[in-house]
Amino acid sequence: MRGKILIAKPGLDGHDRGAKYIARCLRDDGFEVVYTGIRRTPEEIVSSAIQEDVDVIGLSILSGAHLEIFAEIFRLLKERGAGDIAVVGGGIIPEPDIITLRAAGVRAIFTPGSSLEEMLVLFRELAGETRRQRGLITS
């Protein structure tokens, strides 16, 4: 078991093909994946991530509301003392926004050009990092 990931789709759009595919690929790569579905509010995402004690939150955003959503998620994570959970995002996100989001603490943004392999490598790194910090693995 490489780690535990929460995959969610915030925002109102309902296209979850990519999110579901990533969830299955993470499963195939040895992760335990909590899939929470479409139209999730930041509140629901953070609350679920805390109860599930996940290592990484992966958000798929296609609706264009990414700046508002990530900001709210970071605010809630910090407020509840869960700032150690790594957050990554995927979707059609313009370059200047990627810079803004990275500066705000998003660990990685995957765009339509990202390869599956680079995504998996990053999830492994981030999950390992979080789990080591939490003392859940010693190596």
């Binding site: 925002g11 109102l12 264009g64 509301a65 700046l67 508002e68």
Partner: peptide
Amino acid sequence: PLSRGEVGKV
């Protein structure tokens, strides 16, 4: 509240 950031987007 759920419409925030989505009005007139698509």
